[in-house]
Simulated scan of single mutants.
Amino acid sequence: MAQRRARRAGGHGSTRPCPCGLGPAYEECCGALHQGRTVAATAEALMRSRFSAFALGDSGYLLRTWHSSTRPERLVLDPANRWTRLDVLDSERGGMFDSTGTVEFRAHYRRSGRPGELHERSRFGREDGQWRYLGAE
C-alpha cells in the first residue's frame, strides 16, 4: 500500500512508459537506474537514463552519473523545459568491455508551448567501474 501511494505521489507508476523511449515501463527501465537497483551496462543506457532524469527533474541522479573530472558543484534544471522525446542517432564504443564511448542524440522539448531540440554528441567514460557522463564534443 505504501509503495502504491509513493508511486502515485511521484507520478512514476509501474505502467508509465519510460521517458527514454525504449518501451518498458519506467520502473523496469530507467527507474531501476534512478533508484540505484541497477547500473547502466552501456554508455547508451546511461545516456537514456540521464534523458529520463532530465524529463523527470532528477538533478541528483544527473550529478551522481557525471564524471568527477567534469561534474559541476550543483545543477539547476530549467522547469520551463518539458523534455518530450529522445532519438538516439549513433553510438560508438561504450559497450560492456569498453572504457569510453560516445552517443549522438537529439532530445526534443517544449518551452512555453514551442517545440525545440538539443542535438549533442556526448562523451562517456568509466569511473569506479561505472559509466559516467564526461561532456559534449
Score class of each variant (00 low, 15 high):
Glu120Lys: 06
Thr84His: 00
Val76Glu: 15
Glu92Phe: 08
Ser68Glu: 10
Thr102Phe: 11
Ala80Ile: 02
Arg71Tyr: 05
Leu86Met: 04
Asp58Cys: 01
Gly113Ala: 06
Ser99Asn: 13
Gly94Glu: 01
Thr84Met: 06
Trp131Ser: 03
Arg106Glu: 10
Gly94Val: 08
His108Glu: 10
Ala55Val: 01
Gly60Ile: 09
Arg114Thr: 12
Arg85Gly: 10
Asp78His: 05
Tyr109Ile: 10
Leu86Phe: 10
Asp78Lys: 06
Arg106Trp: 01
Gly57Gln: 06
Ser122Gly: 10
Ser59Tyr: 09
Asp98Trp: 06
Phe105Lys: 04
Arg121Gly: 00
Leu75Glu: 00
Asn81Lys: 15
Glu104Arg: 14
Asp78Leu: 03
Arg121His: 03
Phe54Glu: 02
Arg121Ala: 07
Trp131Thr: 01
Ser69Asp: 12
Asp87Thr: 12
Ser91Trp: 09
Phe124Ser: 02
Gly116Ile: 09
Ser122His: 07
Thr100Val: 15
Ser112Asp: 13
Val103Asn: 03
Gly57Ser: 05
Ser112Ile: 01
Asp78Trp: 08
Met96Gln: 14
Ser68Ile: 07
Gly129Met: 02
Glu117Gln: 13
Met96Glu: 14
Leu56Phe: 08
Ser99Ala: 14
Pro79Ser: 12
Ser69Ile: 04
Arg64Ile: 00
Arg132Ser: 07
Phe105Gly: 06
Arg110Ala: 12
Arg82Gly: 03
Arg85Gln: 13
Ser69Tyr: 04
Gly125Gln: 08
Asp87Ser: 13
Pro72Val: 10
Arg93Ala: 15
Phe105Ala: 08
Leu56Asp: 08
Arg64Gly: 11
Gly60Arg: 14
Thr84Cys: 08
Pro79Glu: 04
Gly57Asn: 00
Thr65Cys: 03
Met96Lys: 14
Ala80Lys: 09
Gly116Pro: 05
Leu118Ser: 07
Phe124Lys: 01
Gly113Thr: 08
Gln130Trp: 00
Asp78Val: 11
Ser68Asn: 07
Ser59His: 12
Val88Ala: 09
Phe54Thr: 04
Leu75Ala: 09
Gly57Arg: 03
Val103Asp: 02
Arg126Asn: 09
Ser69Asn: 05
Val103Gly: 02
Leu89Gln: 11
Asp87Cys: 11
Leu86Glu: 03
Phe105His: 01
Thr84Arg: 03
Arg74Met: 12
Met96Tyr: 08
Phe97His: 15
Arg111Thr: 11
Ser59Asp: 11
Gly113Asp: 08
Ser59Met: 01
Thr65Met: 09
Trp83Gln: 03
Glu117Lys: 12
Phe97Ala: 12
Ala53Asn: 00
Thr100Cys: 10
Val88Met: 04
Arg82Cys: 09
Ala55His: 04
Leu56Ala: 10
Val103Tyr: 00
Asp128Gly: 15
Arg64Met: 06
Phe105Arg: 00
Phe54Ala: 03
His67Gln: 07
Arg111Trp: 07
Thr102Val: 11
Pro72Phe: 12
Asp78Cys: 13
Arg111Gln: 13
Asp98His: 09
Leu89Ser: 10
Ala80Leu: 12
